[in-house]
Amino acid sequence: MADILEIKNLNKQFGGVIATKDLNLSILEGELHAIIGPNGAGKTTLISQIFGQIFPDSGQIFFQDTNVTKVSEYKKSRLGINRTFQITSVMKSLTVSENIQLATDTTRENSFNFFKASNNQYTFFKKIDFCLRQVGLIEAINQPVASLSHGDCRKLEIAMALASDAQLLLLDEPMAGLGPTETKEMIALLKRLKGQQTILLIEHDMDAVFALADQISVLVSGEIIATGKPNTIRRDSEVQSAYLGGI
């Protein structure tokens, strides 16, 4: 399988603080690649650079062999990269189906359609139905997002990422703030998605990461100190001392 994303010698500083240091990373198509690391290691900064919300100081990012280092976020998402946010970010005043609809390509392509009713288009039904069934939110289809629980909002975000038909999903701590049951549901959901989608996952929940990931990279102070299969990472002594605290 080919690399879908390749990052070469990425560097980013904020003032004097090094957020990303000479970082190299490749993600194979179809794999679920997790990035773990202590707080402040620069995980979200990395995602934001991949997605184009901030640009690196130096280094390159290749997506499907195209250099996308300086491509801004709204174009990235058109190229087929999408992300979710650590802090839930959805359109609260709209309904669940409207949120999904906004996330679909078809809406984007018809975004200058001024007069045709938006809630009446067959292509959307199938897509919305499919995405909501994937995440188990189909019952909430017509509910306003404001009435959803936190866990359901997290699922909605995943559904939106799915709806975008992205080839690469960047998931920024999808379990953040979830209770034990909801976490289990989320793990099951990500397991279902695994294989259908290439996923770059940032997560604090170690059980989740080791259960899900094909590959794990450990990020400490902006540097990747190890990459490998879950079992390798678990046994890596450097990782243990730096982060896992001797599991």
């Binding site: 709204y74 906004l102 809406t107 001024f114 939106m160 975008s164």
Partner: peptide, 21 residues
């Protein structure tokens, strides 16, 4: 319309609409 839906999306959460493309 689609345009109107996008407009209300922007009113609600502009940053998210940018990241949706």
């Amino acid at each position: 319309s689609n345009f109107g839906l996008i407009l209300s999306g922007i009113k609600d959460n502009e940053a998210r609409m940018v990241s949706l493309g």
